[in-house]
Design a protein around this nucleic acid. Structure first.
Lengths: 353, 353
DNA sequence: CCCCACGCCGTAAACGTTTACAGGAGCAAG
DNA sequence: CTTGCTCCTGTAAACGTTTACGGCGTGGGG
């Protein structure tokens, strides 16, 4: 771990100037003989370019940051899975930030762009405050936001359409003959919670069902919360025949409770989740879920950022990824789980023994 | 996104030298009046320290890398979930590498430590070749390896004991009265595959069951592979009454096939997995699984690395995390799934709407 | 034979910090 | 008034690169 060689070391050994060394290492036109000498010296010394010094001069770090609420969240992980290879292929390293959905932390991340330790940032905030927007406007590096952002915010932006997503699911449940469709929604002050609530009302109206407050229950976006909420809901309205859950974790909690209560899924109660995480395919009965295209949003965000990093100025773009209903056993009828998603091949395994 | 202010800008505006600015910003003793002027100027200009220049001079990047085989692998994610907060608390950023378990990529990561873009590295290789060990010995920054490494390798090292882990599971299955316990193992040339195979033989011997080659089937560590392998196994030996699977994904594949074949789990066939990933708790029936302490290994690795980053030289340490059997419905009897793991609270959700 | 063009190369400055060192101001003691 | 000490500050060098610029040697054309 002694101090490694620098271009000075190489220059000395090869008997040339540091400028020549740099030129050779960067493939700039140089006499063959010089190239040979420098390469030889570099090899012998086991030289590796110092990325920090390089960045200082070139003003490029070849690093990109991804800020998410929680590293443990399957929806963000789906994004990460797509973002990583795109950036890697373009020669960028990925710096991870976990903000725990705390606004102050998210703003810190935005501000820290001024430190110039990354060339750009992809961020997926749960709530977007005025402070966010202000800091965003003053950001010192390109940013792509995954999620909703107010009209006209000058920032590249990739969004899902969970409102339409809820409609897809409700239409499906209605088509199956369900008429008492409850919603277990997330907190209404989050962006997704609000959107999904709105989608629920809309969807009911569209199919001609009445909106009944009794059928709405709020739960935080976690599985135990889902259990609690669904237990309450069942106690109040034992007659529900379908549950629209604001995400897969809540839906899994619902399955737990229904099972313990002896209700058959989907015969007695159909259950749908959102986000189409790995857990949806793994559960039993496997879970019908609305895919909000987490993976695709990640990929698109990475691509937008790269574009901006290479291309320079450009009008801010907005991309909306359409939702897709993935029907599985929890609404469909018989309980097959083994629908082979090709993506599953990616989830390698083999932790160190 | 115009060029931000530097300490020169501040020095000019405050009417002091850049040295004074630096001193103030670093909290070194300075006259009160100067502090005031510099702070005022910095505030007005919205100054942010340039991390790159700082690193160049101080030889510290306050970044740490984590190299795993695959970002999509739940076992590595469990590590990541623990590593991230530990590093964050100590003021380090996390750089992620996905090597796809390709040896050349892993070695690249090790070599790239010479670029000095990170202060240290945590790496979890699937196989450890001589080339790994060579590069490791020449690494230009502290490294912690999660996984097996040959005796005497001078490197901090956190390992699981999957051999004992397999024994725990087999003992459990035996105690339940199972006598034809098959093993669906991973490839034998991987470190985990070899260890788990050895554990299987040992465990059979310990309980006095004969080792029967017919009962061993090899599958890559993926769910579809698990399906294929278990289908073959069932065709060959329809009489098995227990399946020891080398990881949870294979086990999930096993559940798929058993269900389709009309075998009840656990009544007809008991199934156990390894790694105790989130998927094990989510599946139905919920999956008995041997926890190899992924989370703890991640945490310990991060702590070891920090120690070395702060403390400097020290004898290489080795920590072994003991396995733990988590019994769930796939072996136990009735099919409760709702055992509340406290860790679950961490899996927040709420993708952008 | 002289001059110019051209191809290589070395010198030095720059990127934005941190920090060793020395100098200046103020003050107390001799 | 000199000396010496303390406290603060500024100058300059250093970290390891990249790159503008100018110089030198060679070769060809006038």
């Amino acid at each position: 771990m002694a101090d490694g060689p620098t271009i000075n070391t190489i220059a000395a050994r090869a008997g040339v100037s540091i400028a020549s060394v740099s030129r050779v290492l960067n493939g700039l036109p140089t006499r063959q003989e010089t190239v040979r000498k420098v390469m030889a010296a570099a090899d012998e010394l086991g030289y590796v370019r110092n990325a920090v010094a390089r960045s200082l001069k070139s003003r490029r770090t070849h690093q990109v940051a991804f800020a998410m609420a929680d590293v443990g969240n399957p929806a963000y992980l789906a994004m990460l899975r797509e973002i990583q290879p795109v950036l890697k292929a373009a020669g960028y390293r990925l710096v991870l930030h976990s903000t725990d959905a705390v606004a102050a932390d998210e703003i810190d991340v935005l501000r820290s762009l001024g430190e110039r330790y990354v060339d750009g940032l992809i961020m997926s905030p749960l709530r977007v405050t005025d402070a966010h927007l202000e800091t965003l406007a003053a950001a010192r590096a390109p940013v792509v936001i995954i999620g909703q952002v107010p009209e006209g915010t000058p920032v590249d932006n990739v969004r899902a359409d969970s409102r339409t997503g809820v409609r897809l699911a409700i239409d499906h449940l209605y088509a199956l003959g369900r008429r008492r469709v409850a919603m277990v929604n997330g907190p209404l002050d989050t962006v997704p919670g609000a959107a999904r609530g709105a989608g629920y009302r809309e969807a009911l109206e569209a199919v001609g069902l009445p909106y009944d407050e009794d059928l709405v229950q709020i739960a935080d976006f976690y599985r135990p919360e889902g259990r609690r909420a669904v237990a309450e809901l069942l106690a109040r309205r034992p007659d529900v025949d379908a549950l629209m859950c604001a995400n897969d974790l809540i839906a899994l909690g619902a399955l737990d409770v229904l099972r313990d209560a002896g209700r058959r899924v989907p015969e007695d109660v159909a259950v749908a989740g959102m986000d189409d995480t790995d857990l949806a395919a793994a559960s039993w009965p496997s879970l019908t879920s609305v895919s909000l295209g987490s993976a695709e949003r990640g990929r698109v965000a990475a691509e937008l950022l790269l574009e901006r990093l290479n291309g320079g100025e450009r009008e801010p773009r907005r991309v909306t990824v359409p939702p897709r209903l993935v029907v599985r056993a929890s609404t469909a009828g018989e309980g097959h789980c083994a629908e082979g998603r090709s993506a599953e091949g990616r989830h390698a395994e083999g932790s160190g023994a």
